[in-house]
Simulated scan of single mutants.
Amino acid sequence: MRFRLWRSSRQLWVMIGFTSLCATILLLYGFGFAAYTLLHPTAGPKHSAAAPARTKPAAVLADAGEIKITAIGDSLTKGTGDPSGDGYVKQLMRGLQEETGKPVRLVNNLGIGGQQTAQLEQRLHSNGYQYALKQANLIVLTIGGNDLFRAAREAMNGKTDSEQALTAIHKRLPDGLAHMKAILHTIRQTNPEAEVVYMGLYNPFYDIPRLKNGSLQVSEWNSEVYKLLQADDHMLMVPVYDLFEDRIGSYLSSDHFHPNHDGYGKMAERIIQSLSVEGA
Rank of each mutant, 00 (worst) to 15 (best):
D175N: 12
K56F: 15
T167L: 14
L106C: 11
E66I: 04
H125I: 06
Q115H: 06
L138I: 00
G79S: 10
E163Q: 15
D86N: 15
P52C: 06
R94S: 14
A64V: 01
L61F: 05
A155K: 11
L166W: 12
K134P: 11
K134C: 08
L177W: 00
A71Y: 04
A155E: 05
A168F: 02
G87F: 00
R123Q: 09
L133G: 13
T100V: 00
T55D: 09
G158Q: 10
Q97N: 11
D74P: 12
R123I: 00
S48M: 04
Q116D: 04
Y88L: 05
E98I: 04
A49H: 12
N108V: 06
G81T: 04
P103F: 01
D63V: 04
D175C: 08
G176E: 11
G128K: 02
A58K: 05
L120P: 06
K134D: 06
D82M: 00
L120S: 02
K134N: 12
Q164P: 11
K171C: 03
T77Y: 04
T55C: 06
Q91S: 11
H125V: 08
R105G: 05
A71P: 15
P57C: 02
K181S: 14
R153Q: 14
G114D: 07
A165D: 13
V107S: 07
M156E: 15
V107E: 01
Q122H: 07
Q135L: 02
D161T: 10
L92K: 08
L61C: 07
L133P: 13
K102W: 06
E98R: 12
E154P: 04
V140I: 05
F149S: 04
T70L: 04
G85F: 00
D82H: 10
E121D: 09
Q116L: 05
L61H: 09
K159T: 06
P83G: 07
V140Q: 05
N146L: 02
V140A: 07
I143E: 03
G87C: 01
D74A: 07
T167P: 09
Q135G: 02
D74L: 01
G81S: 08
A51N: 15
L124V: 00
G114Y: 02
D82V: 01
Q130Y: 03
A152V: 02
L166N: 13
K181A: 09
A51P: 10
A152L: 10
